[in-house]
Design a protein around this nucleic acid. Sequence first.
DNA 1: GTTAGAAACAATCCT
DNA 2: TGTTTCTAAC
Length: 747
Amino acid sequence: MSMYDNLNSMQQEAVFHTEGPVLILAGAGSGKTRVLTHRACYLIEEKGVNPWHIMAITFTNKAAGEMRERIDSLVGFGSESIWVSTFHSTCVRILRRYIDRLGYDTNFTIYDADDQKILMKDICKRLQIDTKIYKEKSFLGVISSAKDELISPEDFTLRAAGDFAKERQAAVYREYQAALRKNNALDFDDLLVKTVELLSNDAEVLDYYQERFRYIMVDEYQDTNTAQFYLIKLLADKYRNLCVVGDDDQSIYKFRGANIKNILNFEEIYPDAKVIKLEQNYRSTQNILNAANSVIANNVGRKAKALWTDHGEGEKIDFQQFETAYEEADYIAADIRKKVKESGCHFGDCAILYRTNAQSRLFEEKFVVSDIPYKIVGGINFYARKEIKDLLAYLKTIDNGRDDLAVRRIINVPKRGIGATTLGRVQAYAQEQGLSFYQALRGADEISTIGKAGVKIRPFVNFIQTMRSKVEYLGVAKLLQEIIEETGYVSELEAEGTDEAQARIENIDELLSKAVAYEESEETPTLSGFLEMVALVADVDSLQEGSDYVVLMTLHSAKGLEFPNVYLAGMEDGMFPGYMTIISDDPLEMEEERRLCYVGITRAMTQLTITCAKQRMIRGETQYNKVSRFVKEIPGNLLGGMVRTQKKQKDEQESSAQSFRQATSKVKPIFSTRNIYQSRQSNSFASSSTDKIALDYSSGDRVKHMKFGEGTVLQIVEGGRDYEVTVAFDRVGTKKMFASFAKLKKV
DNA sequence: GTTAGAAACAATCCT
DNA sequence: TGTTTCTAAC
């Protein structure tokens, strides 16, 4: 019996059809990851394809990691040379090698949303645009959509002719792009745009990657935008072995430029494409599937699909409407407690999904009080915290002196008495002389206008120069350590003595251990490499298998995940579908919202609970909402739980009102400072202080590492928040590493 | 130049 | 409600 016998006939067809274009329409829970991993395996073991020629591309690091893991366990030999990666990391890898051909340095920096906004503010000021009337964010939105569509500043300018508003946008776009280039920086969209530009302009590079990626598989194809579409098309054009997997019903990223036509018109672009539908669902009960099917049936213009399962009917969907959002949170917390106590359900089996991040707050408060372990995905990224960004700006300045933004961020952190006027003069001088900001600082003595302030600048420049000369032999972690000591960043926080300062120090410690872990996990660690990893991690990436906490996240983040016990909270018109969707005159927006609902429902394996509240506070104002129209699209016979007696409701109201009083009076002050930091600081990618996981290997065991291969565990030292494991690898010698990062597997 | 406190303002979702 | 920006006083 072979491993392929476990697949159903449709899945087998998808696995065995290896040559030419293939479109796999995979309904929710139909085992698409299984198909992709088995397909990679089949290519290598049955078709004799060199793993080096196979590429699998996803949207999130988590999905990529999962696929990597599953391929590793399936493929006997050589799986590590399969290119499994996200779109963005793939682009960065290509650009780090070749972007000099487009006139950038290969050590470019990547700007996050924060950086973009600061840059945009500066540009608006320069162009004398009043940001009270025209918001930075709206310009950034316009530019981002243009980039998604591969529209260059020049193209944009041509199209804008004659339209005042668009001409202004064009001017801003041109300036913005010029500023990025001057700073040797790329924003997120640029990663794709520049890679496509490179591949379409440079035949040599294109040929190299076409030869390398002879078999390409793309996950979540319905979420690709135009730039991603062209990237894939360019790469696949020579061998045409392109296998895309997706589900038009799960297309929920239009706002990010995703073009649903990429999947709907696949057969027109590749007329010889083989189309395979996966309709058997292995995840949910029939009741849950029926609910999902009846909701999505209200959309027009989708590919016909009928999900079915041979699991039984299962439990009815528990639907509850409450007076207030507090009661909703009470109910869900109590229900989770009950399920954990009575039916052997774990906290980690439960997920609460909502439309907007702001909704997490009530649940967090409730869970802190009731002592339920939880983890919030999304919201503020670990790397977006002020203290982390400050330290990273030092690293960026040392790594790439052309990044003006980073330099300006830290020139006066800690306080060096260099203020706005001095900076303005340095800026003017830099502009005049055609220098970068940092270069101007180095030559501060030459700037006549700043006078005595030059004395304050010199130590800073000396410090950066010294650090630059030390990068090579210090390595990332020690460099960071030295920055912290020399600048007195942590000691300043210690002096503050507040809970918040303490939380910041803990975050800095966390950053340090990430730097250490990075150096240990990479074969050739570099400063640029570390900064790059930091720029590309998303929050969902941090979810660890086997940790026991309730997960809270938005419906968008939940795509691709599954949980036995799912709560869809805040199912009200105005929340979900959201206010913006309801007032929109484009009916397609409601369809997208409905697809989001479909995604939510299909995350549930055995039990789905839908809740809503008649009133809730939104930005300090009480809003009154009706039950979501999506709930009404679910046939009544699938719903249970609505029949609650008057008395029972009254009891519940009283008890929740009481706990609400508790939450506001006693708990909140503590909660709002230290605890919120503690609970969120674990929202980072690999290790975390709050959930140390047990190891399933011990000293003397044989283990396997993704890169280093097999080895024997020599020693395990228990550290504060992780285990430090020493392993003697057969191929690469002895290495020390953090357990949570190394992901060692017992063999 | 720096700071704290007041006022203004905000409308998803994310790599 | 929570965050960012403005203002005034040190």
